[in-house]
Structures are given as C-alpha cells and as structure tokens.
Design a protein around this nucleic acid. Structure first.
Lengths: 213, 213
DNA sequence: GTCTATACATGGATAGAC
DNA sequence: GTCTATCCATGTATAGAC
C-alpha cells in the first residue's frame, strides 16, 4: 500500500496547479509529494503516465464531491446558483486550473488525450444528467441539444478559468453577463403559453442559424 | 532590418502551435524560424519575452484580418454566421491554439500575463464593438452587459478550442448546441412587443439570478 | 519499495570570433 | 547581426545498494 502512489497523485495535481504544464517534471512533482524523484518512474513509468492517472483520479474525486448537491437540483435557477458556487469553490482550490493545464498539454501530447477527455467527460456526464432532469418538458429542451449544451458549459468553464488568470475583473464581468443571459433564458422558460407559442413559431421558421459547421 | 526578428516572431507562433507551451524553447523556436538559437537572446533577451512579443504581434495581425468583415455585420444572425466562420478559419490555422497555449502558460508565468491579456483584449474589444452596434436598441442590450458578454464569448472560444483538441465530436455538438441557443436568443430579440413586455416583466421581478459572485 | 548515484539529453544563456 | 562553442542548470531514466 505504502501510500506513495497516492502522495504522487496528489503531488502531481498540486504541481500542475503551481507550475503549470510547462513546469511539471518528475522532480517538481516528487517535491510536492514529499517523496523521492525516482519513485515517479517506479510507480508510473513516466511523468506523462503519472499526469494521466492523476487527471482521471482527480476528476473522479471532484465530481463525486458534488454528486449529492447536483442530484438535489430541481429547477434551472437552482442549477445556475449551484454552478456559480461550484465554479467559485473549484476555481479557488485550483482544480479547474489543473484541468486547463492538462487540456493545454494534451493539445500536443497525444498520450494525455484519453485521460483529459475522460476527466472532462466525467463533468460533462454529470452536467448532462442534471440538464436533462431540470429541463424535462421545458421549451428549452425542445430546441437545444442538451448533451451539446453540457459540453459547451464544461468547455466554457475551462476557458473562463484561463481568462480569469490574466484578467480577473474581465472574468467577473463575463460571469455576470452570463448570469444575466441565463436569467433571460430562464425567463423565457417560465413564460406563459402565449409568449412561448410566439417563440416556437419564430424558431420553426428560422430553425437554427446554420453556421459554418 | 534583417527580417530575423520577424522570422523569430513567426517561428514562435508556429512552435507554440506545434509543440505547445510545454515544448517551446529557444531551440525549437529558432528551428521553426530557420535561424540560429543564440539570436533569440540577442533580439529578445529571453524566450518569454519573445513569446510575449509574438503574442501581441499575432493577435494584432489576426484581428486586423477580420476587422473589415466585422465592420460589415449589421444583424445578430450575420454576427453569429461570421463567428462560426471565424472560428473555423482561425482554429484550422492554429491561431486559437496559440492563444490557448499562451493563456495556459500565463497562469503560472507572470511575465506572460500582460501580453496575453492584451492579445485576448484585442479580440474582446472588437467583439464588444460589434455587439454594441448590432444589439443597439435590442431588448438583449437592456438586460445583458454587452462588455461582459464579449469577454465571455472570447473566453468561450478558447475553452472550445482546448476541448476540440481532446474530443472533436463533442466540440462539434457543443457548437451546434450554442448555435441553437443563439437562435433562441435571436428569436427572443425579434419577438413582437407583447411577448417582449412579458419577458421584461419577468426579468424585472427576478433581476439576475444572483449567483456566487 | 525506497534511496543514492549517475548517465545522458535538453534548455537557457553568454563569450568571442567573424 | 550572426555564428560557433561552451557553461551550467534542469530533466528523464536507470542501476544498484539498502
């Protein structure tokens, strides 16, 4: 058992948050874990393999930490409130930063792709379930692919985290604007049948917007 | 003049796209630029300084490349169509990837913060102007801070780019969902006065959603 | 399983010839 | 301004003692 594996996994996440993907190495991770550098290779074979394992491990922990609270959400307003809460908590603890760094690394390191896809996928899965439950029967679910929306939300969180790192005020304005936009959508969702019918009619005419994809 | 500076700036962007922030070095950049490694330090003093300069330089080029097309946009639908077009072009050319890598690096490298903030800021500025023009007098501008929305859009682009690198299909679903959501908002924007009044009344009651910020 | 020691490669940075 | 050569720090990975 020895716990060294666990120390290394935690150390990898800490080192990623502190030094970024460009600054992690067997030595920095081992230092953060308080163990000998050679043990990285004994237990995981390579630094990348350790990072990949730590990614899955960390994402599982974080998602599990919110599963109960997510399961209790019943309305769109509650979901948005929890989303801001979750963002504040996870961002402050550096967990979003870790995911962002791993995603950046995965862009040019194929060995990191499966792990980061899985890590982000765990969040997507959870968000998707909540959206499906909360928006069941809503006009929103009628016109928007909720699985796609869940993916956009997860990716958006990562982008905002990176933005926050270089412009905190700007990121707060962005969050506030999204809050207002979400309020708008919620209002639409709670409209009376007359107005909803008008929106539906307009949407049936236009369909999506048919962008470049 | 010598053009070596320019070669290095272009080489830095190429190296960032190919090797990521974790893989750039004076040697990889010089190789991409086709010049001697020592010239990085002669012209820029350090690798970080070169990356920072390349970031501003690249962002200016890219924004200038779209300024005309952005200036011609008159409606929200046109804006969204251009947005997807822009995303497809810039993403394919690796320009969004460069910004994402620099943002990731800036999280733990204070020396990169001003340059990346400026680089992303150029995009934000442009987006903000278009939003203000296109949504002037619209109910959307009434309830959503457009400057904040511009920042959210820019950050979202970066997040989607990173997500696309690990899950192309997922990213396409996300974009499609955003397209649908944008269509919904457009529909709202184009509603008749009766429905708009209902939305306004609902919003005045609820205000924003008052999240964790 | 863990430590020390070490090999070997890569990267930042500078000196000095041209 | 550019190139070669080089120093030194850091990083990966392994061997072998404990």
């Amino acid at each position: 058992m020895s716990g060294t594996r666990e120390k290394l996994l935690a150390g990898a996440l800490r080192a990623l948050a502190e030094h970024g993907i460009a600054g992690v190495s067997a030595r920095t991770v081992a230092a953060a874990a308080g163990v000998n550098q050679a043990l990285v290779f004994y237990h995981f074979g390579s630094v990348d393999e350790l990072l990949a394992t730590a990614c899955r491990h960390g994402a599982e922990q974080r998602v599990a930490h919110y599963r109960d609270r997510l399961a209790q959400v019943r309305t769109l307003s509650e979901l948005l409130a929890l989303a801001w809460e979750l963002h504040a908590e996870e961002s402050a603890a550096g967990h979003v930063a870790v995911l962002a760094q791993l995603l950046a690394g995965a862009q040019t390191q194929p060995r990191l792709v499966p792990a980061t896809a899985t890590g982000l996928g765990l969040w997507v899965e959870e968000i998707e379930q909540v959206l499906n439950r909360v928006l069941a029967g809503s006009p929103l679910a009628e016109f928007v692919d909720l699985a796609g929306l869940a993916r956009a939300v997860a990716a958006g969180f990562v982008g905002l985290e990176l933005y926050e790192g270089v412009d905190r005020d700007g990121a707060e304005r962005a969050l506030a604007a999204l809050d207002q936009l979400a309020g708008l959508v919620t209002a639409l969702d709670e409209l009376g049948p007359v107005a909803q019918r008008a929106v539906r009619a307009r949407l049936r005419r236009g369909g999506g917007l048919g962008g470049g994809l």
